[in-house]
């Protein structure tokens, strides 16, 4: 049994799987918070906010995520900022996913019934109260289905962090392949673990959607 675990590098794969999960959670939290900030910017700062955020979204949506990953990891030390590779990776994915998720928030915001705002104003709610009690809860609920897909994409984006030394699943697969000479099974093991993680994400968001929609 022990031989079998050692032969297939199971312990290392499980550690790498854990890393992929941690990175995905960190990048998701970062991405959602950053997207929330961008969304807040667009709703509060009017035309200037919308133009600035639209420009940001265009830049990050139209460049491959590997680019910010490389820029942060290799570029920041040149200006004296030396973060660990995992932090650089999460930060870069956060920057990119913030752009995508802010668009999801924007779409959800557009689908809120405008009459609710008239009603809120008529009973004397302040701007902040309308934002926190009407806008944010509904944006979150309407965003959940798309967010589920986006989190799966974030998880898959973490596979690119092997390019900057992060010991996640793809790195483990490549190292196992180099060490054993095997062609397929190191990558099939990684694929199976990614599937396990994505199924978990799918299940989590399916439950979350049911929980909020029928309350």
């Amino acid at each position: 049994m022990t031989d079998w675990i050692g032969k297939y590098y199971l312990i290392e794969y499980i550690q790498a799987c854990g890393w992929a999960a941690v990175l995905a959670v960190a990048a998701t939290l970062g991405g959602v918070v950053w997207a929330g900030a961008l969304f807040f910017f667009t709703t509060v700062f009017g035309r200037i906010g919308r133009v600035a955020v639209a420009a940001y979204v265009q830049i990050f949506r139209n460049t491959p995520v590997l680019l910010p990953i490389y820029l942060v990891y290799f570029g920041f030390p040149m200006i004296g900022i030396v973060w660990p590779a995992a932090v650089c990776g999460c930060f870069a994915i956060t920057l990119q996913q913030g752009a995508y998720v802010s668009e999801i928030f924007r779409g959800s915001y557009k689908s809120i019934d405008r009459n609710l705002y008239d009603a809120a104003q008529s009973i004397g709610l302040s701007g902040w109260q309308i934002f926190s009690k009407i806008t944010v809860p509904q944006v979150i609920v309407y965003s959940l289905p798309s967010l589920g897909s986006q989190v799966v994409l974030i998880l898959k984006d973490t596979s690119l962090l092997s390019a900057i030394t992060v010991a996640e699943l793809m790195m483990q697969a490549k190292r196992t392949q180099e060490a054993t000479g095997a062609i397929y099974w190191p990558f099939l093991m990684a694929a199976a673990m990614y599937l396990f993680l994505t199924l978990f994400i799918d299940y989590f968001f399916a439950r979350a959607q049911k929980a909020v929609r029928w309350r």
Binding site: F74, G75, P77, T165
Partner: peptide, 18 residues
Amino acid sequence: TIILDGSAAQLLAIKSGR
């Protein structure tokens, strides 16, 4: 030690101070 996927990335690592 850090692990990269090619000599170009290794070169980038030492030139950037990584």
